[in-house]
């Protein structure tokens, strides 16, 4: 039983500044539940651009994007924010934690926005997520005071808090040393095997990509292998 989580049809995007460049050219593919996909390609091939379109943050494109069988195109900014909040977890190259908050608060934040559970429940769930990632003991530390690898794990916990349909990562290991990259990869692997979590990770680390279930390779705005 395969369930389509995300589907894009003929997505095309231009950059207009400084000159008109076609960054994405009729990109189409589907992602089904539980897949661990890596999106690879050379610098400038459009993979990050594609990821931002898929994450609904970039709305300036042609073509159709379906997330959970819903068409994203006609939705308003607030509705898209809702979709991101509920269905997409995000992990960036740079950790992007809020330094003003504790680790726990950082993880709880998207759930507080979603308001599906009470604050106590959210806290309990956040602690559980931190446990899964082995960083339970950092919960009450300030986000500014932990190491890079730890931060990335906190960011993954945050991406998981609302049980998203899909987790997207933009070079989540790009800024980490080998050991921490390995830890992050193992976490992803664990998530997809144990929790049937769908993952879409942009990377240019081929050794990382080769260990995922499926590789989508891009070149000059086109998919050349998927």
């Amino acid at each position: 039983m395969t369930e389509t989580v995300l589907k894009c049809e003929e997505i095309t995007k231009y950059f207009y500044d400084p000159i008109e460049v076609k960054v994405l050219d009729k990109v189409s593919f589907e992602i089904t539940r539980g897949e661990f996909i890596s999106l690879v390609g050379k610098s400038g091939c459009g993979k990050s651009t594609l990821l931002y379109i898929l994450s609904t943050m970039d709305r300036d494109y042609q073509g159709n994007l379906y997330i959970d069988k819903q068409l994203m195109g006609p939705k308003t900014g607030a509705e898209l924010a809702q979709v991101r909040n509920e269905k997409i977890g995000f992990v960036f190259q740079f950790h992007y934690l809020l330094n003003e908050f504790t680790v726990l608060k950082n993880v709880m934040l998207p759930a507080l926005k979603l308001k599906k559970y009470s604050e106590e429940e959210i806290e309990a769930r956040a602690i559980k997520k931190l446990e899964v990632l082995g960083i339970r003991d950092l919960a009450l530390r300030n986000a500014g005071q932990i190491s890079g690898g730890q931060k990335q794990r906190v960011a993954i916990a945050r991406a998981l808090i609302n049980d998203p349909l899909i987790i997207m990562g933009d070079e989540p290991t790009g800024n980490l040393d080998l050991k921490n990259s390995q830890i992050v990869f193992d976490i992803f692997k664990q998530l997809t095997e144990e929790l049937n979590q769908t993952l879409l990770i942009v990377t240019h680390d081929m050794s990382f990509a080769e260990r995922t279930h499926r590789i989508i390779e891009m070149e000059d705005g086109r998919i050349i292998r998927s």
Binding site: S55, M57, G77, A78, A81, Q82, V83, R84, N85, E86, I88, F90, F92, Y96, L97, L98, L109, P110, K113, L114, R158, N162
Partner: peptide
Amino acid sequence: ILKATGFS
């Protein structure tokens, strides 16, 4: 980051 995690 607030926006990316779903704050409008």
